Lab assay of single mutants.
Amino acid sequence: ENVVSAPMPGKVLRVLVRVGDRVRVGQGLLVLEAMKMENEIPSPRDGVVKRILVKEGEIVDTGQPLIELG
């Protein structure tokens, strides 16, 4: 699984990683606000951040690609 998608609609509050960062399974990639709750979106696997597909403040839909892992 190379693309991390939004599990719910919401607003991207914070991106916690940068392109080139090594991440571990379960590590927070970004914080999504949904229904006034902050939800940290975890990495599904170990890898390297290849691309960040959203910006802070952006509104996303369920299933929208957020981050690509390499």
Rank of each mutant, 00 (worst) to 15 (best):
E1G: 00
E1K: 00
E1I: 00
E1M: 00
N2Q: 02
N2T: 14
N2H: 04
V3S: 14
V3A: 13
V4Q: 08
V4A: 13
A6I: 05
M8D: 10
M8R: 10
M8A: 05
P9A: 04
P9S: 09
P9H: 07
G10E: 08
G10I: 12
K11F: 11
K11W: 10
K11I: 12
K11C: 01
V12Q: 02
L13V: 06
L13S: 13
R14P: 12
R14M: 12
R14I: 14
V15G: 10
V15Q: 09
L16T: 08
L16K: 05
V17L: 06
V17Q: 07
R18D: 04
V19K: 10
G20C: 01
G20N: 05
G20A: 06
D21M: 01
D21I: 01
R22F: 04
R22H: 04
V23Q: 11
V25C: 01
G26I: 07
Q27V: 02
Q27C: 01
G28A: 13
G28S: 11
L29S: 07
L29G: 04
L30D: 00
L30Q: 04
L30W: 06
L30E: 02
L32F: 13
L32N: 12
A34L: 06
A34I: 07
A34Y: 07
A34N: 12
M35P: 06
M35V: 04
M35I: 03
K36H: 07
K36C: 02
K36E: 08
K36N: 08
M37R: 06
E38H: 10
E38V: 07
N39C: 01
N39T: 09
N39P: 10
E40I: 09
E40P: 05
E40D: 09
I41A: 05
I41G: 02
P42L: 09
P42A: 06
S43L: 02
P44N: 14
R45A: 15
R45T: 15
R45Y: 15
D46Y: 02
G47T: 14
V48G: 07
V48R: 02
V48P: 06
V49H: 02
V49Y: 02
K50G: 10
K50L: 04
K50R: 07
K50P: 13
R51M: 15
R51I: 15
R51P: 11
R51W: 12
R51N: 14
I52P: 04
I52D: 10
L53V: 02
L53W: 08
V54L: 10
V54K: 04
V54N: 04
V54C: 01
G57D: 08
E58W: 03
E58T: 09
E58H: 06
E58L: 03
E58A: 14
I59R: 02
V60K: 02
V60E: 02
V60A: 12
D61Y: 09
D61P: 10
D61L: 13
T62N: 06
T62Q: 13
G63H: 13
G63Y: 07
Q64L: 11
P65D: 14
P65T: 04
L66R: 00
I67N: 09
I67Y: 10
E68A: 00
E68I: 02
E68Q: 01
E68N: 00
E68T: 00
E68K: 00
L69K: 01
